[in-house]
Design a protein around this nucleic acid. Structure first.
Length: 278
DNA sequence: GCCCAGGTATAAA
DNA sequence: TTTATACATGGG
């Protein structure tokens, strides 16, 4: 991956391997918003940035060399070739080619573990616009000022609150889930840091000790918050119609990219469904 | 108004 | 172990 740090920021020569819309609006994150000009604004850690496409490049505005190495390279997983992953998945399961081709340029973001966990607790039985609203109110209410927005509040800060304190979020029944997660994370009974390397099954089990965290939220946390690309929502996969036309594919045959493969499949089946409805 | 949202806890079969 | 239902809220 080639890049230059210029006056306007980090210019990454990444071609078709990074599609902003498919990456930011696919449901893996809830803190990036599209601007009228097609650029996206978001807050990661305590950095408030704008990012846009310019020809063959993706530009991270006002990005220094230090931030590029320290934050963005990891966040956007720039050392990983998603073209190679797509090829590998296609080789493992040729029948997935249509799914892999259906949404190009999607990258799995390396979000912060607690933010991902909290976001996906909020996401249950919910829709994306509303999830974004609740997350946004959570940050405004309990995060720190950061540029034009707010940082994501820590588990320690949220853990000291009661469910009633979250009433302004209008998160409904999820409020007490958020509090339980925050307390378990901040007192160490759920150790997110360890989940970068611990066996997936163990991580999954530990996450599911949190009230309101089931198989789906656990897998999403692992995939999007800890970058465990092999994490795969087995229960959901088996039960839902998602598997209909790919029912012959075993999780094992997808190898260490099972989680990403499932992304492609999800978007493929969803776009098919949308086509039928229209 | 009505249906539903990349779910999960809970109770009952 | 599997299946049905409630859950808070608001977008479409």
């Amino acid at each position: 991956m080639k890049y230059n740090i210029t006056q306007r920021g980090a210019e990454i020569e990444i071609g078709s391997c990074f599609d902003l819309k498919n990456t930011f609006d696919c449901g893996q994150c809830f803190r990036w918003n599209e601007n009228p000009d097609g650029s996206y604004s978001g807050i990661v850690k305590n950095r408030d940035v704008r990012i846009f496409r310019d020809g063959n490049c993706v530009v991270i505005e006002n990005c220094t060399n230090e931030d590029f190495d320290g934050i963005w390279k990891k966040y956007f997983d720039l050392d990983t070739s998603y073209d190679n992953i797509r090829m590998e998945i296609t080789q493992l399961c040729p029948s997935l080619k249509c799914a892999v081709d259906s949404i190009n340029g999607i990258r799995i973001l390396n979000q912060e573990p607690w933010e991902a966990l909290c976001s996906f607790i909020i996401s249950q039985n919910n829709n994306i616009p509303r999830i974004k609203g609740i997350v946004s109110r959570l940050c405004e209410g309990f995060g720190d000022k950061c540029g034009i927005g707010y940082t994501f509040p820590s588990a320690q800060v949220i853990g000291r609150l009661e469910a009633d304190d979250l009433a302004p979020l209008r998160a409904g029944f999820r409020a007490r889930y958020i509090i339980d997660a925050a307390r378990k994370v901040s007192d160490g009974s759920v150790d997110l840091e360890k989940m970068y390397y611990a066996p997936i099954a163990d991580c999954r089990k530990e996450l599911m000790t949190i009230v309101g965290v089931g198989a789906k939220v656990a897998e999403c946390t692992l995939l999007y918050g800890l970058h465990r690309l092999e994490a795969f929502p087995v229960d959901v996969w088996m039960k839902k119609a998602l598997a209909d036309q790919f029912s012959g594919i075993s999780v094992q045959s997808l190898g260490r990219y099972a989680g990403i493969a499932q992304q492609y499949i999800f978007h493929y089946t969803r776009s098919k469904a949308a086509a039928i409805n229209s």
